[in-house]
C-alpha cells in the first residue's frame, strides 16, 4: 500500500495511474494520521511553493511528513515535492518542510535557455542507489519546472541534469528519495524508477 499525499497541488491522478499500472495499491489522502502511519509515501506536486506549504501547514501534513521521514519508511518526493522537502524555497520566499538541509533555487535566466525547463532531458546518477538502479545512461526523463533542489550536503545529491548549467535533478538521503523530473510521465524508465521505489525498503542496502 502506497499513500499519496494530497495537498491540492497538481495532478495526483497521473501518479496514481502509474502506480496502478505497476500493480500497486495506492490511497490518496489529505489526512495527517494516515500519512504519518503509512508504510510507503509518495509526495508529488506541481504549482507554487508558497501555497503548497500553506496547505500542508493548515492540514497538519507538514508534521505528518516529518514523522514519515523520522520513522524511516520509504518516501518519494516528485517535482515540487522534491523542492519543499528542503528548509527554504526561493519561490515565494517560503520556509519548506526541512526534511533535509538546503534550499530550492530558481534556474538562472540566460540567453537562449527557456524557462520553465520543459521536456525530456538526461540525468547523470552520481552514486549507486536502489531506486535509481538498472537505468541506461541514455534514458531521458520528463521535466517541467523553474526551480530545483539544492541540498546543503553534496552526498545528498543523487542525480545531475544540464539546462544552461548543471542542476540537481535527483536527491537521496536515508529513507528519502526525490526527483525533480516526473517519473510518472517519463515512459518506461520513469515506471522503472517507480517500480524500484515500490520494492525499496528505505535503506541503502543493495
Amino acid at each position: 500500500m502506497v499513500v499519496v499525499v494530497d495537498y491540492q497541488a497538481g495532478n495526483l491522478a497521473s501518479v496514481v495511474r502509474a502506480l496502478t499500472a505497476l500493480g500497486a495499491r495506492s490511497r490518496v489522502t489529505d489526512e495527517p494520521e494516515v500519512v504519518a502511519a503509512a508504510p510507503r509515501v509518495v509526495f508529488p506536486g506541481v504549482g507554487a511553493a508558497g501555497r503548497a506549504m500553506a496547505v500542508l501547514r493548515e492540514r497538519g501534513l507538514d508534521e505528518a511528513l516529518r514523522q514519515v521521514k523520522a520513522r524511516g519508511v520509504p518516501l518519494l518526493g516528485i517535482c515540487l515535492g522534491a523542492q519543499i522537502i528542503l528548509e527554504f524555497s526561493q519561490e515565494n520566499e517560503t520556509p519548506g518542510l526541512g526534511l533535509l538541509p538546503g534550499r530550492a533555487t530558481a534556474l538562472p535566466r540566460q540567453p537562449g535557455i527557456k524557462i520553465p525547463h520543459m521536456g525530456w532531458n538526461r540525468v547523470e546518477f552520481v552514486r549507486p542507489h536502489p531506486v535509481f538502479a538498472g537505468l541506461p545512461p541514455t534514458a531521458e526523463y520528463y521535466f517541467v519546472h523553474s526551480y530545483f533542489p539544492e541540498p546543503a550536503r553534496p552526498e545528498m545529491v543523487a542525480g545531475i541534469t544540464e539546462h544552461g548549467r548543471p542542476f540537481v535533478s535527483a536527491v537521496a538521503w536515508e529513507n528519502l528519495v526525490a526527483t525533480q523530473f516526473h517519473p510518472e510521465k517519463s515512459g518506461r524508465f520513469g515506471l522503472h524508477i517507480l517500480a524500484n521505489f515500490l520494492a525499496w525498503d528505505g535503506t541503502l542496502a543493495q
Binding site: A21, Y142, E184
Partner: peptide, 8 residues
C-alpha cells in the same frame, strides 16, 4: 488514453 501512455 491516460491509462495506457506514460508521457505528457
Amino acid at each position: 488514453v491516460a491509462k495506457v501512455i506514460f508521457i505528457p
